[in-house]
Design a protein around this nucleic acid. Structure first.
Lengths: 206, 206
DNA sequence: AAACTTATTGACTAAAGAGTCAACAGCGGA
DNA sequence: TCCGCTGTTGACTCTTTAGTCAATAAGTTT
């Protein structure tokens, strides 16, 4: 006894939304097709009508997640900042601040990454996303180095971007591991002290 | 037709070794009891004789991994270093250098951590290990701050240790994600430039 | 050497979950 | 109003894998 029909592509999106809900709740490993169906208010068979198999569904979900992403949206206002170093740090700060609110998604990314060790497609997608993130940081890093060549002698822009990306990813990890403990401000203060403080002695008071 | 007997506790260890081999090869998700049995040259039933169920086996494997660990063994020689900052950085450098050789184990830790989101025991074990790592860094961080209170004003030892731990974990992530691309030296150079360079102008040449 | 204990086996069961499919309902067009 | 297309269903099959258990061999004790 088939139920009501849904317009065109909408069903696909409904199913993906449901998959996201279930995957967030049960983790990727515990995300069963039947649960997704229940969550979407739809029969299990229909899932296989829209997606060839479970893998296809999960890959589509990952695409969907990456689409509405998150990482390395450099805000316009930040680009207005004078000092390259300040610009670089502001971007990092922004991303770190954004992380806690996106914990669910970040968690899912990690799940996918673990899954990726067995699925080349997924691994490629995730690496691609991380590469894009690093690439987005590169020009900023380049500017930092150019502004103070003496200090950053034999530091490459790639290297600096990689370190920064690694730092953000480390934060992401911490947040997922133990959300209660992660102190955004403490992190940023320490980071600031490590990288910037002594360069702006007039700015010590803040 | 039972096979030969093995002395005492040795079987347990053999099985854990086999489990480690299989888990490294097939990832934790693909680590099946029957495969572990085959790898250990033993019947599947015997696994359940030594371990109540699969979870127990995997938890034991994690304990085993954590035991022969890796993280935050502060070498004696490093402790001899004069400057607290140099000591701190030397420890980080050491740990980063050690990571690539331990990729398999590191990968497994990540698998476990993902698994931990569904198994409180495992989550607790991993958090405990990370906490211990952070704690091991704490005294070093404390010394760094004490040596230059002005620079590290309102940076706490906890915060600094957390940032450092996060940095290492970020590196671990990078290594597992894309081992080919990770450049230990580039990382260390950038890190050095960020944290230390300008404090030792006489040391610029190296 | 008999009795007893314990490690070991392989064939079995059970459960879960992915994927299939024949039937069917809603809807547009002839 | 009948036809046909397509979204939709639920019950079914198939596969995989964790976990059980009675039988049995290797040692140990007496």
């Amino acid at each position: 006894m088939p139920g009501p029909r849904a317009p065109e592509e909408q069903r696909r999106k409904e199913i993906l939304r449901a998959a996201f809900t279930v995957a967030s709740r049960e983790r990727l490993t515990g995300c069963k097709v039947s649960d997704v169906a229940k969550e979407a208010g739809v029969s299990k068979g229909l899932i296989f009508f829209y997606f060839d198999n479970k893998d296809t569904l999960l890959v589509s979900l990952l695409e969907w997640l990456l689409h509405r992403t998150i990482l390395a949206r450099v805000d316009e206002e930040i680009l207005q900042l004078e000092s390259p170093r300040e610009r670089f740090l502001a971007v990092l700060r922004k991303d770190i601040e954004r992380l806690p609110a996106q914990r669910e998604t970040v968690e899912l990314f990690f799940d996918y990454w673990v899954m990726g060790t067995r699925h080349p497609d997924i691994q490629r997608m995730i690496r691609g996303a991380l590469d894009r993130y690093r690439d987005a940081l590169r020009p900023l890093a380049e500017a930092v180095i150019e502004a103070e060549p003496a200090r950053y002698e034999d530091v490459t822009a790639d290297g600096l971007a990689a370190v920064a990306a690694g730092f953000i990813e480390g934060c992401a990890l911490q947040i997922v591991m133990d959300p209660g403990r992660f102190e955004v401000e403490a992190y940023l203060t320490s980071l600031h002290a490590l990288v910037v403080r002594h360069y702006r002695p007039d700015d010590v008071t803040s």
